[in-house]
Structures are given as structure tokens and as C-alpha cells.
């Protein structure tokens, strides 16, 4: 559970910082640890970077998604559920954007591959009407694979 907390709130944090928090966790209650992890995230500027990445990455893909969807609805007459809701799409888009910002941080601020993957994800979502949750799950899988590769999770 703590590993997930570190991975979500302190992506890309140094090994010694996570090790220190892990050591402190042995002698402090969970709330103390949560508070210190949140504060450490703020000091590491992860939250700020995540907010900036989200603002950058969510804007254009979201607009593109809605335009692609509108285009798809007019061009593909045999779609099974052309009446999927905007709210569902928006929720999926926000979830993907959050994960995107997170992964951008994980990859050390390398925007291009993450932005490309995000655009592709949005395009697939809009054109195929795939359930957003599946797309998010696929993206989450990729993020977990990245974390595993970096040794943040076992």
C-alpha cells in the first residue's frame, strides 16, 4: 500500500527519500506518513509539475477528442452506440490526462512520447468509441510497467 502511495504522490523521487519515508513509516502512524508524503510531494514540486503537465496535455487532446468524435459520428453510420455521453468521455479524458501527467513526471519530464501516446489514446477513444475505462486501464498498465522497470514497485 505504501509503495502505491509513493508511486502516485512521489513519482520519480530519489531512492534515498523513499527509503527515509519507509524507515520513518516503521515508527509513525499512517496519518503521519500520509501528511509527510504529501508535504514531500509539494517540496519536490511534483504537484506543481503535475498540474502544469495536466494543463498542457489535457487542453489540446480534449479539443481534438471532441472534434474527432463529432467527425466520427457523422462519418460512421454503423456505430453501435453513437450516443455515448459527453460526461463519460470527459471523465475518461480527465482520467487519462491525470495518468499522462503522472507518467510524464515518471519519464523525467520527457513530453514527446507521453504526448504522442496520449494523442493516440484519445484518437482511439474517439474513433472507436471504446469504453474509456478500458483505455485508462491500458494506460495504467503501461504506467505500472514503467514503474516496475524503474524499480518503484516490485
Amino acid at each position: 500500500m505504501r509503495r502505491i502511495l509513493y508511486a502516485i504522490l512521489l513519482p520519480g523521487a530519489s531512492e534515498h527519500l523513499i527509503g527515509d519515508l519507509e524507515e520513518e513509516a516503521q515508527s509513525h502512524p499512517p496519518f503521519w506518513l500520509l501528511r509527510h508524503v504529501l508535504l514531500a510531494a509539494a517540496y519536490q514540486a511534483n504537484l506543481l509539475e503535475t498540474a502544469a503537465a495536466t494543463a498542457f496535455l489535457v487542453g489540446i487532446p480534449l479539443l481534438v477528442t471532441f472534434e474527432l468524435r463529432r467527425f466520427a459520428l457523422t462519418m460512421i453510420p454503423f456505430r453501435e452506440s453513437a450516443d455515448f455521453s459527453n460526461l463519460s468521455l470527459l471523465t475518461g479524458a480527465l482520467a487519462i490526462a491525470t495518468l499522462t501527467a503522472w507518467e510524464t513526471r515518471l519519464l523525467g519530464g520527457r513530453w514527446l512520447p507521453v504526448a504522442g501516446a496520449t494523442a493516440l489514446t484519445f484518437a482511439i477513444t474517439a474513433l472507436t468509441n471504446a469504453p474509456a475505462v478500458l483505455t485508462v486501464a491500458a494506460f495504467l498498465g503501461g504506467s505500472l510497467a514503467t514503474l516496475h522497470r524503474r524499480g518503484n514497485i516490485a
Binding site: 530519489s14 531512492e15 534515498h16 523513499i18 527509503g19 519507509e22 524507515e23 516503521q26
Partner: peptide, 11 residues
């Protein structure tokens, strides 16, 4: 690295 730190090293 030490076990109590989840195998992570100190700095």
C-alpha cells in the same frame, strides 16, 4: 541498502 528501508540506500 538496508531491509528496514525496503532495500533502499541511505544518502
Amino acid at each position: 541498502p538496508t531491509a528496514e528501508r525496503g532495500g533502499r540506500a541511505k544518502r
